[in-house]
């Protein structure tokens, strides 16, 4: 019912516009600025990572430290689908819908299993229990020799069987990125809809005071599970596209890599947790700063005689710290506090 409520729809559309505009600019940059398409694809990946993560973390305040497990499971599900379809001799295009469905499905199954235990926990307990899920799964893949064990799953060959050599080239470089842009648009709409609907208010109530929300009759468990599964499914599809389709090699060591979760947190916090624009802005800054310090600043320093590896991280870390002290609620949070102009405020969602 809430779905067709015209006010909700109008709100959702209004809210999604600024984010969609940023993605449109990114998409244009991807095609128009030569030699930087992968930089924009990387920003896109991290923006999506942040957005998908944000749906649960930003809106409920629960930090899922094992979030990358959704991406990993999704990537593996996509990989297995590709292998199955290749051995069945199916036409290549079937992989995209079936693989993404499998990825989302696998991630949702994981989400419901983890949710059953972990969603009863609060704050830091939840955060750390989910670390346990991620690490436990990784060592399970390695120790029980599942899908290639620690060596990993190689699906480039299968993708080439499905799409042909030329087709694979196209899928792995351009199509995978375009599909990610599609997923990004979809994620924006989902987020905007949640923010405008009953669910958004419920999640916000949970973030403010879960017990009070429960006492007021909000079905806390239902909304938490819904948000968790949505966030997980989007993550699963992202992992499928960025790692399985684009790279074709899945190693437990690198796909269950906890640093991705930490980066997701950085991006969401930098931009502003719980906001729609936050993760996108966060990813732009985080990857932008990293790229600038890596590609320009480090060689510059080397040019004047300072030669040490890891320089750019030494530069980046204090900037991050200064940033977080200056704007603990993220950029969007800071702008909302400072900007009084109602027209501009309307776009800070």
């Amino acid at each position: 019912m809430a779905l067709v409520d015209p006010w909700t729809v109008r709100e959702a559309v209004r809210k999604s516009l600024p984010a969609l505009a940023i993605y449109a600019v990114l998409l244009a940059a991807y095609f128009l600025i030569p030699g930087k398409s992968q930089l924009f694809a990387t920003i896109l990946f991290y923006a999506l990572l942040g957005q998908a993560f944000n749906i649960f973390m930003g809106m409920t305040g629960y930090v899922d430290f094992g979030y990358v497990a959704f991406l990993a499971v999704g990537a593996y599900a996509f990989g297995v689908t590709a292998m199955a379809l290749a051995s069945l001799g199916s036409p290549g295009w079937t992989l995209i819908p079936l693989g993404l469905l499998a990825a989302a499905g696998a991630a949702m199954i994981l989400a419901s299993m983890v949710g059953a235990i972990a969603l009863r926990l609060r704050g830091a307990y939840f955060a750390i229990a989910t670390i346990g899920v991620n690490e436990g799964l990784r060592y399970f893949f390695e120790g029980a020799n599942i899908l290639g064990g620690s060596i990993g799953l190689y699906i480039v060959k299968d993708l080439k069987t499905l799409f042909g050599d030329e087709g694979y080239q196209f899928m792995a470089t351009i199509a995978a990125d375009l599909l990610m842009f599609g997923l990004a648009g979809f994620t924006v709409l989902v987020t905007a809809w949640i923010l405008s609907s009953r669910m958004g208010f419920a999640l916000q109530a949970i973030r403010e005071d879960e017990d009070a929300a429960r006492a007021l009759g909000v079905n806390v468990t239902k909304y938490k599970v819904l948000a968790f599964m949505t966030s997980g499914a989007l993550g699963g599809m992202l992992g499928a596209l960025n790692w399985a389709l684009k790279e074709g090699v899945l190693e437990p060591e690198t796909v269950f890599f906890i640093v991705y979760t930490v980066e997701a947190i950085i991006i969401v916090v930098l931009g502003g947790a719980g906001t729609l624009l936050g993760p996108i802005v966060g990813a732009l800054i985080y990857i932008g700063l990293n790229y600038v310090s890596n590609v320009y600043a480090a060689p510059l320093l080397e040019g004047i005689g300072i030669k040490a590896s890891g320089l750019h991280l030494i530069l980046l870390a204090p900037i991050l710290i200064a940033f977080i002290i200056a704007a603990p609620n993220g950029i969007i949070g800071l702008l909302r506090e400072r900007i009084r102009n109602p027209t501009i405020r309307r776009f800070l969602v």
């Binding site: 305040g61 930090v63 704050g123 830091a124 930490v262 947190i265 950085i266 969401v268 916090v269 930098l270 947790a273 040490a308 590896s309 890891g310 320089l311 991280l313 030494i314 980046l316 870390a317 204090p318 991050l320 710290i321 977080i324 002290i325 603990p328 609620n329």
Partner: peptide, 30 residues
């Protein structure tokens, strides 16, 4: 660092301590 973050959201402190960790690692490596 830390004293500016008392009233910041829990997440901000996660990020700040993470950055401190990276800084220490890279300085030790240098």
């Amino acid at each position: 660092v830390i004293r500016y973050l008392h009233d910041a959201p829990e997440l901000a402190t996660l990020l700040a301590t993470f950055a401190i960790g990276i800084l220490i690692q890279e300085l030790v490596k240098a």
